[in-house]
Design a protein around this nucleic acid. Structure first.
Lengths: 231, 231
DNA sequence: GCAAAAGTGTTTGGATTACACCCATGC
DNA sequence: GCATGGGTGTAATCCAAACACTTTTGC
């Protein structure tokens, strides 16, 4: 039936790699760690780990995220699965990539057993990484760009209170194209935003109003009407 | 470092499940097999198999496809990965779903060691399946519908020579909405189609022209201009 | 002629685009 | 005042929806 013994199939391992994206200084960044163990000791890599025998794979992604950043309850998005037989030098390890979005200001990297050092790196300046992580990162980044078009996840990258110009700049960066200010504001009219009374401070021009994404209203709109987020 | 021995991580297995979609009688169908082995002997299931130790996961998906249908070289699209620790009764088996599209008329199901019987089932009449296959199928179907919007894959479901009305009916089915004939034809104007001299035969109304997708022209358009398929 | 679907043209209203202009703040 | 970006209005244009109409086949 099988060309090998059935038990010989139960010799694989499984990992998840968790691409953490953030946005600062007008650029999308990924959080990379410097590995402090073999294999690829000393190389930069996407944070990832083996999945425990009784652990769901999405739970493993959450664990990695919180071990590294002490942040819980971030949305995780499943990306691609990579299964080249030779991708891992220590055996057959298949890996599923996830990505999470965070506000860089919110967070402090925690040193952990497997990460001596962690650093935010602009997505267009990623060095050579361990394993097939360059491939994983680039395909996951493409997926992020895709999702920015169809889901209101830009608000997970922007500060909680943001200006409309900041939002526009993020989309201009993601789509690598300039947008007209007036038209951008017309386009986002249907997105439910909370308008704050506060304004920008310490800017040497007219201060902009601050907004937040109205998540609960968005959920309402999804349920009741047939509103479809689209950028 | 780890709470268990390193070697205890290398006790998992990995499978791929290959959802094969077809289109006939105005409905999208999935090819299901009746399992003839434990576990879930006698249950209907998505064709799938364990991945061999030295086999890439996409190669495994191709293998399943060709063992079952003797068709090679179909495009495979990676879908979601499922890793609930209890999804498989015989151990920790993580699975990645793929899907392929085929013209139902083209093909004959081959009996194989693990499939005593195979059957095309309309996507809205799927019975109780083995493992978590109902979940896998429904999420993969959603992905198919999504991709029908953004990629010219409807032509993998339609006959090689098709009428514009057949194409429209497929989209009406996929999006569960009626479309205007004249507007549909205006919308697909930019899609490169080969217009055949032949027409429908044996219809009791004016016979429609037959078309085929002009794949090579599509590739050209993708490269040269900034054409973007969109339905 | 009639039924049925193929195939095309016109009108209309809403969305997108380009662009112009005024406003508030720091220096 | 001037530079800088915030914020809004308008006209031109494009696009999609609605609908009407003609054409070709079988019976």
């Amino acid at each position: 039936m099988y060309k090998i013994e059935f038990n010989d199939f139960f010799t694989y391992s499984f990992s998840v790699d968790c691409v953490i994206f953030g946005y600062k200084e007008g650029q999308i960044h990924a959080l990379l760690i410097k590995r402090s163990m073999e294999p690829y000791d000393g190389h930069w890599a996407i944070p990832g780990d083996l999945v425990y025998p009784d652990e769901d794979i999405s739970a493993a992604a959450s664990r990695i995220l919180s071990e590294l950043t002490k942040i819980e309850n971030l949305d995780l998005h499943q990306s691609e699965t990579f299964g080249d037989p030779n991708r891992h030098p220590q055996g057959r390890v298949i890996t599923t990539a996830y990505f999470a979005l965070m506000r860089i200001d919110d967070f402090k990297v925690e040193a952990s057993s497997w990460a001596g050092e962690a650093r935010w790196v602009p997505i267009h300046k990623i060095p050579q990484l361990a394993f097939d992580h360059n491939l994983i990162l680039s395909s996951t980044y493409k997926l992020l760009i895709q999702k920015l078009k169809n889901d209101p996840i830009c608000f997970d990258l922007l500060p909680y209170k943001f200006t409309l110009n900041e939002m526009q700049k993020l989309y201009e960066y993601a789509y690598d194209s300039d947008m007209d200010k007036a038209n951008f504001r017309k386009k986002i009219k249907p997105i439910p935003l909370i308008e704050h009374k506060e304004k920008q401070v310490n800017v040497k021009h007219r201060p902009a109003k601050l907004f937040s994404f109205d998540e609960s209203e968005y959920v309402n709109m999804l349920e009741s009407s047939e509103y479809q987020f689209k950028m």
